[in-house]
Design a protein around this nucleic acid. Structure first.
Length: 490
RNA sequence: GGUCGGAUGGCCGAGAGGCUAGGCACGGGUCUGCAAAACCCUCUACAGCGGUUCGAAUCCGCUUCCGACCUCCA
């Protein structure tokens, strides 16, 4: 099997993936902040990294997949100031902060399940790792890269920069950050607590309005946003681990700060491969509340949104996302979604056609060659569009065989079935969403099809068409083929 | 203002010096009582202007337009 090559944001090049300790692979993905229902954009990361996860398992690696839940520390206006998002929501709705975090965590999990995303090995919560975060902050202070100021603790970016590359991951130059054109208007409370404007908070002293608060050596307060990922990834994956993933929008300041904190704390680069996926756009622009183009996952699946012409299934969304490369932006549109819906249907349909094929004596295709081609697509920086193109070539071949214009021997047929199972279902994680029929339903369908067949033979077309139409109305499609009638549930 | 990325056929989207995506839509055909499905055929594009090259969508330069990040963000 050839090597997986993946684009590393830090080194800015495609690199061959080599785990630190073969065959173990540690992956950390930045999960959601649970203060609202997930929207369309939240689906991309889990889907992309799920394919990575599944493909690594396919390649024989033992993967520990960690995806966190941020349930503290994110602030409304600014990384260092303002109200905690979760605490704010709590006051508005008069609920316990943890109740809200739980509610939206469940909502997020429902999305993952609908999208057939494999569960994480560990799903740590920031609120459950306050001790680890405080510990890490202590170490960073001891090593001289952070200082306390009025009960809060800040990371000393200038000091860190003397011997380290702050800004390398996100391609930022410290001087530009300091100049910060466009940032002049920012008037931040507590900015005077910092030695330097670029310093970021590791611990914040809580004002009386903060409901979520924990004791610490410096004050009763709460951890800064970035420290949770550093503390949790270190706890479960070690000082240096294989892969860290997330959205491109997290590059700065979040991931940049993570590197700084972890490096300052442990003396090691925390991550070997940084993988970032791009954003989903609507009419060429990122989804944002101010543009009123945000579509929640629920709205998407129900079709209940002014930008949606109809409801789309989770698998349609997944397939739509997988038809584009993860590093490019992906523009949402109804026509594109509907194209994906039909394409997916064709792909899944061919999988069933495959089960009806009878092997012949000779073979017009070689399953081993196909396998190599499909793997090559994913090895090339997880190029799912190419993989899918290859699968559609397969669809054409399967259909041609089914139509009797090509043949396949039993050995290749068995391999082909396995190939289809592996790539379509196991790696891409697609599944058939139509209801599976019980034996009884199957029996009823057989009776109906037989009755209709009789009607057709008697040229009683009004009756046969009525049967077909009525079934269609309840979502069952009849298709008359050469070898009899088949049906699909819509 | 700074940094980084884009501009591909009707739409979505790969590719990345000579071959060629793929899906959907459109048009024609085979099959069929009709329909659907399936299959076959057709549709040959790379923002503009220069340059490098035997050859450029792909490399270089300039221009125009678009986006992301710089603040919470998947």
């Amino acid at each position: 099997m050839s090597d997986l090559k993946i684009y590393d944001t830090y080194k800015r090049e495609i690199r061959v993936f080599k785990p630190i300790r073969h065959p173990f692979v540690g992956i950390y993905i930045c999960g959601p902040t649970v203060y609202g229902h997930p929207h369309l954009g939240h689906a991309r990361g889990p889907i992309v990294f799920d394919v990575l996860h599944r493909y690594l398992v396919y390649k024989g690696y033992k993967v520990r997949f960690v995806r966190n839940i941020t349930d503290v520390g994110h602030l409304v206006n600014d990384a260092d100031e303002g109200e905690d998002k979760i605490a704010k929501k709590a006051r508005v709705e008069q609920l316990e902060p943890m109740e809200i975090a739980q509610f939206y965590t469940d909502s997020y999990h429902q999305m993952l399940q609908a999208l057939n995303v494999r569960p994480a090995s560990i799903e740590p919560r920031a609120s459950g790792h306050i001790i680890e975060q405080i510990d890490m902050i202590k170490t960073i202070i001891d090593k001289g890269f952070a200082y306390e100021s009025n009960g809060s603790v800040y990371f000393d970016v200038m000091k860190y920069s003397k011997d380290h590359d702050y800004g390398k991951l996100s391609g930022r130059i410290l001087e530009d950050l300091i100049a910060g054109a466009g940032n002049e208007a920012r008037e931040l409370e507590g900015q005077d607590e910092k030695h330097h404007p670029n310093d970021f908070a590791l611990w914040k002293k809580a004002g009386p309005e903060h409901i979520m608060r924990w004791p610490s050596p410096w004050s009763t307060g709460f951890p800064g946003w970035h420290i949770e990922c550093s503390a949790m990834s270190r706890k479960y994956l070690g000082d240096t681990f294989d892969i860290h993933g997330g959205g491109m929008d997290l590059l700065f300041p979040h991931h940049e700060s993570e590197i700084a904190q972890s490096h300052a704390c442990t003396g090691h680069q925390p991550v070997n491969y940084w993988i970032h996926h791009n954003m989903i756009t609507v009419n060429g622009q990122k989804m944002a509340k101010s543009l009123n183009n945000g579509i929640s996952i629920d709205e998407f699946f129900s079709g209940n949104h002014h930008l949606l012409e109809k409801a789309y299934t989770p698998m349609t969304l997944k397939f739509f996302i997988l038809q584009a490369h993860y590093r490019g932006t992906l523009d949402f549109s109804n026509t594109a979604l509907q194209a994906s819906e039909k394409g997916l249907n064709r792909l899944l349909q061919a999988g069933e056609t495959l089960n009806r094929i009878n092997p012949g004596n000779s073979s017009d295709l070689n399953a081993d060659t196909l396998k190599v081609e499909l793997e090559a697509a994913l090895d090339d920086d997880l190029n799912t569009p190419i993989l899918i193109a290859g699968l559609f070539d397969l669809v054409t071949k399967i259909n041609t065989i089914a139509a009797g214009q090509m043949s396949i021997d039993s050995e290749n047929l068995i391999k082909l079935k396995a190939l289809y199972q592996t790539f379509v279902y196991d790696i891409l994680g697609l599944k058939n969403e139509t209801e599976s029929s019980s034996d009884k339903v199957k029996g009823v369908m057989d009776i109906l099809i037989e009755l209709r067949q009789v009607a057709k033979q008697e040229k009683n077309y009004p009756l046969s068409d009525t049967i077909r139409m009525k079934l269609s109305e309840i979502g069952i499609e009849l298709k008359d083929g050469k070898d009899g009638t088949t049906y699909t549930f819509n």
